[in-house]
Design a binder for these strands. Sequence first.
DNA 1: GCGACAG
DNA 2: ATCTTGTCGC
Length: 225
Amino acid sequence: MEIAAHVRMPRNEAEAVAMQVELAGCVVAADDDRPVDTVAGLDIAYDKDSDTAVATAVVLRRSDLAVLDEAVVHGTSDFPYVPGLLAFRELPLLLKAIEALTVEPDLYLCDGYGLTHPRRFGLACHLGVVLDAPAIGVAKNPPHLPVAGPGPARGDWSPITAGEETVGCALRTRDGVKPVYVSVGHRRTLASARELVLELAPRYRLPEPIRAADQLGRKRLAETR
DNA sequence: GCGACAG
DNA sequence: ATCTTGTCGC
């Protein structure tokens, strides 16, 4: 409770970068023993012409993708969008939405990068480390890094590399459809992250938890204005 | 060398 | 992120 209120926020970009470098050392890219039975999808929708933002968290049961819980929080982001610093813009509101949940999920799916990040500390890593919970980053756009196009079939994937290290992968979740970009957030290996995302996206390009959060946010934003 | 990078 | 509905196709 009150996690959002305890998150350290930088006063400027330089501080933000320093925080990322420092916290990046906390990321654990290994699977823990705990079973993943419930997964939360997170997202934020922004109003076209106001500073209103709506953060949503939707918890789905892994076995049948049934919705178990939803949370919606309205607010404002004071931190601007800066490539590489997305977490500072979205984390506060996302944490509030998570606090509003009554079901604590076993895994968090974030919109954006995890280790696929200039300092290996994207939104999914930040959220995972702050909550000390398993987290995976799922981005809709590729990073500016070498990425071979994965095969054309669902399940095909290819690594995203930064020098010698593999920082994520492009994963085809639907035949012939643009891939999504998966990376480790926290407490998960890239292999299991990739398998989970594929499993959670049986029908559409994006995994169901994220789609659910996406739709809920858009809907509530439309109703609110 | 510089710039570019999720939402 | 956001501007944007229906429509063509598998």
